[in-house]
C-alpha cells in the first residue's frame, strides 16, 4: 500500500515550500508561551490544561491538520502535476494511503509532539496532562489528515473550507454550542485524552470513549475510502 516515491514527492512538496514556515509557526508559538507561562506562574495544572486544551487541541491541531492534509494533494490537483502520479500503473488506493500516512506523520510531528513538549514544560506531566493531550492530539491528527486529504481531492477551495471548519466549527462552535460538540473531531479525541489523564486532571469530553473511537474510525476510514474513489475518477478537463 505504501509507495516510497509518492511519499517522497508528497513530503518534499509539503515541507519544501512556504508551508514549512506555516507549519512551524504555531508549535513554536505554543512552546514560547509555555516557557513564558511556566516562568511567570510556575507549574500549575489548571493553566497547563487551559493552554493545551484551548490552544493546542482546539486551534493548533486542526490548523496543522488543514495545512498538511490539504497540502498533501490539493496543490498537485490544482497545478495538474498529479497527472504524473496518475499516468502510472499504480493503485489509486496506494497513492491516497501513502499521502494520508505522510499527512498524519507531518501533523503528529508538528502538533502532537509540540503538545507533549509544551505539557512537560508547563507542569512536568503532572496528572498525566501532557501525555493525555499529546495522545488526544495524535489521534485527532489521524482523523483531521483523512478529512482534509479528502477535502483536497474534492474541492479547489479545500484550504478555505478547511480553515472555516477548523476555526469556526472546532475552535468556536465546538467549544461553545453544546450540541455541535458531539460532531467534532476534537471532542472525540478528547474522550481518549480524558481516559489517559488522571481522574483529578479534569479533562472532559462530550462523548464517551466507545462513541469517540467509533466516530474517529468512521471519519478516517470513510474519508480515505471516498478520497480513493474520487482519485480513481479524477477528470482533467481540457484547457481550451
Amino acid at each position: 500500500m505504501y509507495n516510497h516515491t509518492v511519499a517522497r514527492l508528497t513530503y518534499k512538496g509539503l515541507l519544501g515550500r512556504r508551508r514549512a514556515l506555516l507549519l512551524c509557526a504555531l508549535p513554536l508559538l505554543l512552546l514560547v508561551v509555555a516557557v513564558a507561562v511556566r516562568g511567570l506562574t510556575g507549574a500549575d495544572d489548571e493553566v497547563a490544561k487551559g493552554l493545551l486544551g484551548s490552544f493546542a487541541m482546539a486551534t493548533m491541531v486542526p490548523l496543522i491538520g488543514v495545512v498538511a492534509g490539504t497540502g498533501a494533494i490539493g496543490p498537485e490537483i490544482d497545478d495538474g502535476s498529479v497527472v504524473y502520479l496518475l499516468a502510472k500503473p499504480l493503485k489509486r488506493s496506494s497513492i491516497i494511503v501513502t499521502k494520508l500516512l505522510v499527512a498524519i506523520g507531518v501533523t503528529v510531528a508538528f502538533s502532537a509532539i509540540p503538545t507533549l513538549l509544551a505539557g512537560y514544560i508547563l507542569n512536568g506531566n503532572s496528572q498525566q496532562i501532557a501525555v493525555a493531550y499529546a495522545v488526544g492530539a495524535a489521534v485527532a491528527s489521524v482523523a483531521y489528515s483523512a478529512l482534509f486529504l479528502l477535502l483536497g481531492t474534492i474541492s479547489r477551495h479545500a484550504v478555505v473550507i478547511g480553515l472555516v471548519y477548523a476555526l469556526i466549527w472546532e475552535a468556536l462552535v465546538g467549544s461553545i454550542v453544546p450540541g455541535a460538540r458531539d460532531l467534532s473531531v476534537q471532542q472525540w479525541a478528547l474522550s481518549l485524552a480524558q481516559k489517559v489523564g488522571d481522574s483529578g486532571a479534569g479533562i472532559t469530553s462530550e462523548v464517551g470513549v466507545p462513541t469517540g473511537v467509533t466516530l474517529l474510525l468512521v471519519v478516517t476510514l470513510g474519508g480515505t475510502w471516498y478520497a480513493v474513489r474520487k482519485l480513481r475518477t479524477l477528470k482533467l478537463a481540457g484547457e481550451e
Partner: peptide, 19 residues
C-alpha cells in the same frame, strides 16, 4: 491504470513538481 504501461503522456499544463 494498467494502460499506462503502454502510454507515455506529455501534458500541455506546466505543473510538474518545480521544487
Amino acid at each position: 491504470q494498467e494502460a499506462y504501461k503502454e502510454i507515455g503522456l506529455v501534458p500541455e499544463r506546466e505543473g510538474m513538481y518545480d521544487f
